[in-house]
């Protein structure tokens, strides 16, 4: 049984409870322990790439360092948290100048220079559980469902920092969809942006982007879309104008593992 330091992030505590709840019960069923630290802080939602920004990177470093001190890998399920934490970890291990400034500020007992391994929940399913093993544990396969995986931008890019999958031809979510017994639908817009936070400022732009994604998926025959990102889910549901249902991948995972009804009872 493997234990991970679990970083849920602010949204999973509020608007994206489903993403969190199903992730937890599924992990338990798969023999994975998600240990949440007591005092994590919001990651900030977006990684600031600027070299002269240090303060905005500290909360992610604190989470990474907490995992390091516990001697466990860090796992996230929200695409945004995952993106921020992995980019932070990449930069702190590749940019000495940044590492020095961050450590100078934090004054940790031991300097943090990128020692923690960061997993996305999907990576844990692929690399720790294994999709073949997952398939064996599925009791309620979603046979016949045509599901389109939506990666968006945060899960894959920048590829050298995220190092999760081929950024132009990813397979991890499709392999996940196959493992839970459904049929993946591949469509070109699966790795394009949904509009993200622009929904606050410019609804029209968010509508245009999310519609492009949903239409591309529907066009290729998808009956449903899965995502790992609360903001993607929001945009695709509320801004796209499409009737295509959108779910968190964890919800389908729980369903396939026969845990969904149980948790709703």
């Amino acid at each position: 049984m493997e234990t991970f330091t679990y970083y849920p992030g602010c949204t999973l505590r509020t608007k994206a409870k489903d993403l969190d709840t199903y992730a937890r019960i599924s992990a338990e069923a798969l023999g994975i322990v998600l240990a949440e630290p007591d005092d994590w802080q919001c990651c900030g939602g977006a990684y600031t790439t600027a070299k002269d920004e240090i303060a905005t990177k500290l909360s992610a470093v604190r989470a990474l360092n907490a995992a390091k001190e516990l001697g466990r890998p860090l796992i996230t399920v929200c695409s945004a948290c995952h993106n921020v934490i992995k980019q932070t970890n990449y930069d702190i291990s590749h940019d000495e100048n940044m590492a020095a400034k961050v450590n100078n500020y934090l004054q940790l007992p031991e300097a943090y220079t990128g020692e923690t391994t960061v997993y996305h929940y999907l990576e844990m399913l692929r690399d720790v559980v294994g999709f073949d093993n997952l398939k064996e544990k599925v009791t309620n396969p979603l046979t016949g469902r045509k599901i389109a995986a939506y990666y968006g931008c945060l899960l894959l890019r920048p590829a050298k920092a995220l190092a999760m999958d081929d950024p132009e031809n990813p397979a991890i979510m499709e392999d996940f969809i196959k493992a839970i017994g459904a049929t993946p639908v591949i469509y070109a817009q699966r790795n394009e942006c949904c509009g993200g936070y622009i929904t606050l400022e410019d609804k029209a732009q968010a509508q245009k982007r999310s519609a492009a994604v949903m239409n591309s998926a529907a066009d290729m025959g998808a009956e449903m879309i899965v995502t790992a990102c609360p903001l993607c889910l929001y945009n695709l549901r509320k801004n796209s104008g499409s009737e295509l249902p959108v779910y968190y991948f964890t919800e389908l995972l729980a369903e396939a593992l026969g845990l969904k009804e149980a948790s709703n009872e």
């Binding site: 949204t11 939602g45 977006a46 600031t48 936070y197 929904t199 929001y234």
Partner: peptide
């Protein structure tokens, strides 16, 4: 709005 995730707000503030 009631469904807007916190993520959008913190990201926008950061940006």
């Amino acid at each position: 709005d009631e469904d807007l995730p916190q993520q959008a707000i913190v990201t926008a503030l950061r940006k």
